[in-house]
Computed example of a mutant assay.
Amino acid sequence: MSWVTRFLWDHNAFYHRLMLRRLPSSCTRVLDVGCGAGAFATALARRVEKVDALDRSEVMIAEARRVVPPNVTCILGDVLTEPLPPETYDAITSVTALHHLPLDQALPIFARALRPGGVLVAIALPKADLARELPIELVAMVAQRVFAGTFFLLRKLGLGTWYARESTHDVMPVVLDPPLTTREVRAQASALLPGVRVRRLLFWRYLLVWHKP
């Protein structure tokens, strides 16, 4: 492993706690869309009784099945075609998968699958929008390096994993140029899910939260 690789850290894992805090206080069953290698599904499983972890990649589902606890069911499938039972989930989560999906198709599917009072929480990658987000981009570039050094030092001192990148990270599907800016996501999501909140996060992600009436 090169010294550059050792300094890299997992921005997705950094936002896991932010997402967990958005779960309903009473939460029994959760759908994790685009579960990847199962890291967030595993975190969810410590908080809720049952997690359905869905991914369309055979490689990712195989990795997830190796690590998830018994209360997680791993499902190989595409959320756009998988028949999800209506009004079943207390929460639907997604970590860096939403930008792989057409919002006009995916968001109504999520809305139907949520129970009344359920919550949709997603972290995804926005398209660069330097005209509107240049300040946050500049801050992120500096903070990325400061955090990388701090997390690396903490790992070297044996004080935890501190967002170390997993070995499966390099085989995960990646969209180099997500199709929508944060502003465009907000506009499209608002038309489909009244009351949705979309905000840009520091490290090249946006957060989407919607509470189903």
Rank of each mutant, 00 (worst) to 15 (best):
S25T: 12
L18Y: 10
R29W: 06
R6M: 08
T182N: 04
V171F: 09
E82K: 12
A131P: 06
E137M: 15
M19F: 07
D104G: 12
K156E: 14
H99K: 11
T150N: 07
L159Y: 02
D55N: 04
W210P: 00
G195W: 08
V79T: 04
P173M: 09
V146W: 14
F40P: 02
L192F: 04
D52V: 15
R21N: 12
G195C: 09
D104V: 11
G195M: 09
A41V: 02
G158A: 11
V198M: 02
S26A: 15
G36Q: 03
R132N: 15
Y206D: 00
T168E: 11
R6W: 10
W9Q: 00
L207V: 11
A122R: 02
R197N: 12
T181F: 04
E166T: 14
A124T: 06
D52C: 10
Y15C: 07
V4Y: 14
R183M: 12
L44R: 00
G149Q: 02
F203S: 04
F40L: 10
A111L: 08
H169E: 13
F152C: 10
F110H: 02
V30F: 05
V185T: 09
L157C: 04
L101F: 14
H11F: 13
E87H: 03
F40S: 02
L153W: 08
C35W: 00
T168R: 05
D177R: 12
W210A: 05
A128P: 02
V175T: 12
H16E: 06
R183T: 13
A97K: 04
N12K: 06
D10T: 03
T5W: 15
D55P: 04
T150F: 12
W210K: 07
R200E: 09
E87F: 09
Y163E: 01
G38W: 00
Y89M: 11
H11S: 10
Q144E: 15
R66I: 03
A111W: 01
K50Y: 11
H99F: 10
A97S: 14
S25F: 06
V68S: 01
L208Y: 01
P178A: 05
V175F: 00
S26V: 15
L101K: 01
V139E: 13
A143H: 08
